[in-house]
Design a protein around this nucleic acid. Structure first.
Lengths: 237, 237
DNA sequence: CGACCACTTGAACTATCTCAAGGACCGTGG
DNA sequence: CCACGGTCCTTGAGATAGTTCAAGTGGTCG
């Protein structure tokens, strides 16, 4: 199978050629020269689950793993406002009014770039700015979908929607009709903080889905879904 | 008081000079030539409250009035996912995965531009792309704030937060300490659809805020707030 | 082995919803 | 001028989805 050929293929930095995130990430919007410059300034890290990713002066491609974004109320109540699944792009252009914390849910591999370089390149490469805008609008769409879920869905619809979302992101390339099995990268507490529920309610809804035959709970974290269709009926949309 | 001087002031189209949205909207990122071109292609409309704004091939500055954005579940449940208060910018670059409807809550005046022209200008004026990105990120921050409210706040915190948000947007220029009075541009049903509550609960929380002296309900829609500080204590953050 | 952590399950509780009735306002038509 | 119906809002009483509190399970790690 001939891979998508790039006229400048030969000039692409070696490390980028095998990059899992390459075409989907912001790197896909760069030409070979820019990619080379960015690669030179980039650094790869692996951070263990539970690490808070500092909201510092870097952008990163998420090569593998899952990251949660949280907003906290001052009394400690917590809401997860989004996730990043590999391959995705992390990092917020400009300053945010509101503090949002990012934390690795699993072990995570990152390819990070100094903010200054990317910001300069957005001036030179309009395609890059376009891509950042598209990315932000995607996140906005997702946030609004979850607003509808948080405001208007029942607990069991929320849990079904959540499982569908995770299934779609954990292995996006899978065949839509095939059975699905994955390790949940979240604790029940995280799921509760995302869905605006308590851990007890989440647990009860898992049990209910299991006894109804919609899911199979192998080992607390490992879930298999009989079929996406069965969950789609229960997710409220 | 000397207004902010623009080197090209003399070339700015007459209609734009007096525009309420000018500096805050996307027009603030254009030079005089671009502004002139855009002004030539622009058209002003006034639409009455209740009109659905078609998600068509236009961008618009919202010169006056308030617009709601809604997401619907297939069984009719509705969630309001955002508002636009004048002066704000309406219109979504690229295609959205999800259908979101926009509807005028009050009479609304718009200055609309053909999508094609703006899209072309983003290629020519990096500042414009930057501004669109900033705008999208602002909306994302707001959506995430409301995710936290929907998921983790009590009914009375939600209503207090909502009143604060409206107060801050209806007359952003007001002195922060002064008493505030405004006409709510929403029905109780709209408020409920925004906060993930029922109209009865919204009504009860209004009554409670009134009997606690936090607000004064002049005429169902017309609300006056004793002080922002008093509501801020009740809003949960 | 014991302690701990994440999770499950049950039982009682409560914030919010549902259902129902009534009040205030408003335009229309007599 | 009043009667009428309509829409929006308020208030009460009972129902319920989801929470809180509490006990128990199972796996893991020192």
């Amino acid at each position: 199978m001939a891979a998508r050929q790039d006229a400048q293929q030969a000039d692409v930095p070696a490390i980028c050629k095998s990059c899992e995130a390459r075409q989907d990430s912001l790197c896909g919007a760069l030409n070979a020269r820019q990619l080379a410059e960015l690669a030179k300034a980039s650094s790869r890290h692996e951070v263990p689950a539970g690490t808070e990713l500092p909201d510092d002066a870097t952008y990163s491609n998420l090569l593998s793993g899952v990251v949660k974004l949280t907003r906290n109320l001052p009394d400690g109540r917590q809401q997860i406002v989004g996730f990043h699944f590999a391959p995705d792009f992390l990092g917020r252009p400009f300053d945010a009014k509101r503090q949002i914390r990012a934390e690795a849910l699993t072990n995570v591999r990152l390819c990070s770039f100094p903010r200054a370089i990317v910001d300069r390149m957005t001036g030179e490469a309009p395609e890059l700015g376009r891509l950042l805008l598209k990315h932000a609008l995607n996140e906005l769409d997702e946030a609004r979908d979850w607003m509808a879920a948080l405001g208007r869905k029942t607990a069991s619809e929320k849990v079904a929607s959540f499982l569908l979302m995770v299934a779609r992101n954990m292995d996006p390339a899978r065949h839509p009709a095939s059975p699905i099995s994955f390790d949940l990268p979240l604790t029940r507490a995280d799921i509760a903080d995302f869905l605006g529920l308590t851990i007890e309610t989440v647990s009860r809804e898992f049990s209910r889905l299991r006894s109804d035959g919609a899911i199979h709970i192998v080992n607390k974290r490992q879930i298999s879904l009989a079929s996406l269709a069965q969950l789609e009926e229960r997710c409220g949309d």
